[in-house]
């Protein structure tokens, strides 16, 4: 294998974002990198080394974008998937989803505007920008946009703003091998393919789920708590 591929793979061995104990202990999609086709390997490995020099976001926008993406994807500790940097690459090259809502500007413009709106909201909370607020205040601001639903947020339909942010953020995060390690997804599968089909059937390189926890009851409790907390934060400042 190409030595630089080995180098990139080694530096990323078995990583998951953050420090929670993994659901799939020891699972590492990069163990299989020599069984991927070269074109796919090139595309995927490039995500592990995005340029830290952003070209679309201004410095101010970058800080706000990173704070927003950290909230949307609960990246509160290292190692972090560089979500804002991956979004920056798309916006710099104009790689949209091929449509935008008639009541929204085109995507690049919409990102710039909505990041500025978030900083405006942060100023109203007594901060200077979103990134300068505490975690709970940031979460409350983001939550407030989601809760507006179809209503207007700074003149844009909040639900369409939410769609823009989450589409770009999730696309970046779940394209990254560390995220695949976290969810037990082996990533590229050509020319290898799969052989063992059926419930609880695994390939040699797949790892069994060590926790098997239904996310529904936990998230119900966590989201109720988050809403209470947001209400308290917003209440304090108003």
């Amino acid at each position: 294998m190409n030595p630089s591929v080995v180098f990139i793979a080694d530096r990323n061995r078995g990583r998951t974002p953050g420090s929670s104990p993994p659901r799939f202990p020891g699972f590492d999609v990069l163990n299989e990198v020599d069984r991927w086709d070269a074109v796919t390997a090139g595309v995927v490995l490039a995500r592990l080394t995005p340029s830290p020099e952003l070209s679309f976001f201004t410095g101010v926008e970058q800080a706000t974008a990173e704070a927003l993406c950290d909230q949307l994807l609960a990246q509160h500790e290292e190692p972090r998937i560089p979500v804002a940097a991956l979004i920056d690459v798309r916006l710099a090259t104009g790689e949209t989803d091929g449509w935008h809502y008639a009541d929204m500007p085109e995507d690049a413009q919409a990102w710039r505007q909505t990041l500025a709106f978030l900083d405006n909201d942060a100023k109203r909370q007594g901060g200077t920008s979103l990134s300068q607020l505490g975690q709970q205040q940031q979460a409350a601001l983001v939550q407030a946009v989601q809760e507006l639903d179809a209503q207007s947020w700074h003149g844009l339909p909040a639900t369409h703003v939410w769609s823009l942010w989450t589409r770009y953020a999730c696309t970046a995060f779940y394209s990254h091998p560390w995220a695949w390690n976290e969810i037990g997804f082996p990533g590229p599968a050509y020319p290898r393919g799969y052989k063992n089909m059926g419930l609880d059937a695994r390939e040699k390189f797949e790892v069994a789920d060590a926790a098997n926890t239904d996310p529904v009851p936990w998230t119900r409790r966590a989201e109720a708590a988050k809403r209470r907390q947001a209400a308290a934060v917003t209440g304090e400042s108003s």
Binding site: R23, Q71, L72, L73, A74, A139, V142, Q146, T166, C170, Y174, A179, E182, I183, G184, F185, D209, A211, N212, T213, D214, P215, W218, T219, A222, E223, K226
Partner: peptide, 17 residues
Amino acid sequence: QGHWGESLREYMRDYVH
């Protein structure tokens, strides 16, 4: 479903089920 943040991550960790 309205999930984001830690809830989104928790649902996603359960993808294989």
